[in-house]
Design a protein around this nucleic acid. Structure first.
Lengths: 255, 255
DNA sequence: AAGTGGTCTAGACCACCTG
DNA sequence: AGGTGGTCTAGACCACTTA
């Protein structure tokens, strides 16, 4: 009966050339996404039960379920039978460190130690600004840190953050926080990293980087440039990591 | 009514500690997978319609659908509204070169030229044998090739294949084939690459490799070691690729 | 017009978790 | 016992493709 059913508040999506047809569950998905964006449910919190959402949106439970399943497949939600549906989080995630692909050659993934080297606020250079969709000169936070496996440095990260979203972030706060950095961003600033793009290259270590990593100048390093996005595909973090890969590798799965 | 319904021929999966409970659509998925493994439907071919499969397995169409959707999510099938459900293929894929993550810094992905440098049959060294789940000394095919963007070499691949699965493969056959190598494997040998694991490192170019790639000895290269699997998670190919990343990068998405 | 996959519904029941 | 998500069914209808 609800053939061409359309939810109120979803018709004005005249983005680019009418999509011709949008199934109900897609519209529900959009509404749920909007609620997530607006912070109605925060990282780690539970959503209302399926039946409740079905009432709220005036559709059948099956349709809500399909929307929730889609968001789960996108990595935005986590479903736990018997308990509920939860907003995905980088803390206490089933797999800690969702975005870290570095693996040791031997043995299981070890927890690496962090050491913060630098933290400052500055005006974004052109390339950083472009990557973060800012205007050149907008404020960014820049930080540099080392990840160590045992006593040997493995990763040197330079990180740039949109300063407007992380007001009040300090070196001390970073130092003190236990758990993934993205967990802190969720908990303290309400900024959730949803997805990221990485560009990977091989480069020769410069003098300064080599010294910090305890490697020879000119030795080959993996350069991993990551751009991370929150809701609505808004870029909020740029990261340039230099990885030593003598005893570790970057893992990837293709399918 | 079919509460504890179990399909015939699926109960004997006493792999490791009974999984306690297996939903019907999982069992259907398993049966479909077996048919794929046995070659009942080959790469690019259409499966029977949902209604037909439902009859065949004596379950509802919705259950078959769920199994098909799962296999689609795994990348084994491709569904096309109005046309049918097809076995995924590396040829004529919606995205050509499913497994190639190399992108040029500027402009769209260009088709790269292939140049075969070497082709031989040999007994597997210990490390190759282990990676391909063979006994040391079993036959493997080894081949070396270059990928070029325009006139400049970008990738040097060393590839090892389980020789038993590729009887009759020759250098000439490789040279002549248009389209992705994995397409040839499907069409000529019935071997489908389903998924792959990659380990990525940065290394310094050796003399020989540097010469072939037109790079300086000692310059940093991306080392991409790939193990590809067919059905039943059987490893059939090992590949060591050296990538020049001055004008290209390895792309990855995290979520 | 006929066939395919895609959507939506409604209801029954199962498995898992928590009090 | 009562909540949650997960499975399975049956049927109606829609959208896309081909002939």
């Amino acid at each position: 009966m609800p053939a061409a059913k359309t939810l109120p508040g979803t018709e004005g999506d005249a983005d680019t050339a009418a999509p011709a047809f949008s199934p109900l569950y897609q519209q529900i998905k959009g509404l749920l996404m909007r609620s997530l964006t607006l912070g109605e449910w925060k990282a780690g919190e539970a959503l209302p039960a399926e039946t409740e959402l079905a009432q709220r949106f005036k559709v059948s439970q099956g349709t809500v379920r399909k929307a929730l399943d889609a968001l789960t497949a996108d990595g935005l939600l986590v479903r736990r039978q018997g308990k509920g549906t939860f907003v995905a989080t980088h803390s206490e995630a089933q797999v800690q460190y969702r975005f870290l692909r570095l693996m040791p050659d031997h043995g299981p993934r070890e927890a690496m130690q962090r050491r913060f080297l630098d933290f400052r606020r500055l005006r974004a250079p052109a390339d950083i600004a472009r990557a973060l969709a800012l205007k050149a000169g907008d404020g960014v936070l820049q930080l540099r840190r080392l990840l160590l496996a045992g006593d040997t440095p493995v990763v040197l990260d330079d990180i740039w953050l949109n300063a407007r979203l992380f007001k009040g972030l300090t070196a001390g706060r970073l130092q003190a926080y236990r758990g993934p950095m993205y967990g802190l961003f969720e908990a303290e600033f309400g900024v959730q990293m949803i997805r990221a793009e990485e560009k990977i290259r091989a480069v020769a270590a410069g003098e300064a980087e080599a010294a910090l990593l305890g490697a020879a100048a000119g030795s080959p390093l993996l350069l991993v440039e990551r751009r991370s996005f929150t809701y609505a595909d808004r870029p909020v973090e740029l990261r340039r990591g230099l990885y030593r890969t003598e005893a570790h590798y970057y893992r990837n799965e293709l399918s």
